[in-house]
Design a binder for these strands. Structure first.
Lengths: 191, 191
DNA sequence: ACTATAGCGGAGGGTTGCCTCCGCTATCAA
DNA sequence: TTGATAGCGGAGGCAACCCTCCGCTATAGT
């Protein structure tokens, strides 16, 4: 349903500028913001981000008048990638499809914190993005449930919050993170 | 092991003052800090904390010269309570003892964030506190393993990081948090 | 090449938080 | 009661960050 004909909700109100140099700056800002939010959390300094992107602070504010706009742009990008990942995973057998997607979810280094810090925000745009993500992931989970692989007394919301908690936790390394995720997911498996 | 003869590591270098009014202030600061760190994370404003405690900012700094000192004092208090909780739980059957303690761990509202944000800090004092907590909790886990209730291919460190991730995650309510924790712990159960 | 203008960027004013310093006050031992 | 002093607290200097504003520069259409 909708506007661009089939991609639904993910519509950022901030638009990519027209002029070539401006577009370069826009993209550099987005990349810098992604890094900064990932490594320092949502409170990262905007001036640092601008400096990191090699542009003036004024340019940052022109493109993203409020911190939230920048956060949204980054966040929505992540969500979109997750939606695509869900489509990719759909070919696998039910349980693998689900776990593959969730590992991917956890693996996204960038904006990890932002993602879960925002999970119960009330702002409309966040709601929309979250719904998009739910829409992408829930089918994988339901399929696993129907195949008798996943417990039926667990909701997708439970699952996603569990996983996003793990996303944010501190681990020694990537391997431990994956190991722990696998363990936790074992708890979701039908016995 | 040492000095006070049997409580090991948990020794805060900050000391409770002598004079009655000073002690009152000290305790008020600690309580305010506990709240503030819990609700706003480790970055909470020290001036807010002092105001909340009803003392001047100068008093805060006299007792806790650096933010870290205050954080330590609060954090160590939490850890100590967790150690005691572990002792209390020791009477229960192996698996219940473990899960009861872990639910308790998650349930501690105060300094939730501080706890996990600090889990892989390098500072000595943090290491010491973490070790104390591990020393208190690991026996519960080992007992559950020996009783054949908990998987043997999971380490206590894995378990604790998993749980501390859930501690920090955003949940709709306490009930969901407990439910999700139970699910995740099912993954740790021996099959 | 020329020009209208989209876009740049950083100076600067405001706010908030950090931490020090020191004159004042409450406590408590004598 | 009183005096020595532990302890108080907030004014104030500093630093970081936020965001706006506007004179300058690069772009792109002609």
């Amino acid at each position: 349903m909708a506007s661009e004909q089939n991609r639904p909700v993910l519509q950022v109100d901030v638009r990519r500028p027209q002029r070539a140099d401006a577009r370069r700056n826009f993209d550099a800002l987005l990349a810098a913001a992604r890094d900064a939010f990932a490594s320092k959390g949502v409170g990262a300094s905007l001036e640092d981000i601008a400096r990191q992107a090699g542009v003036g602070i004024g340019t940052l504010y022109r493109n993203f008048p409020a911190r939230q706009d920048l956060l949204n742009a980054v966040y929505f990008g992540e969500i979109e990638e997750l939606c695509i990942a869900a489509e990719d995973a759909a070919d696998l057998p039910p349980w693998e499809a689900l776990t593959t997607w969730l590992h991917r979810f956890v693996g996204y280094a960038a904006t990890k914190r932002a993602i879960w810090e925002s999970l119960n925000r009330e702002a409309d745009s966040f709601k929309a993005a979250r719904e998009a993500m739910y829409a992408a992931g829930a089918p994988l989970f339901e399929r696993a449930q129907e195949a008798g692989e996943a417990r039926k007394d667990v909701s997708f919301d439970d699952l996603l919050r569990m996983v996003s908690g793990l996303t944010a936790a501190g681990f020694v390394d990537q391997a431990q993170r994956d190991r722990v995720l696998t363990i936790a997911l074992d708890g979701v498996r039908a016995r």
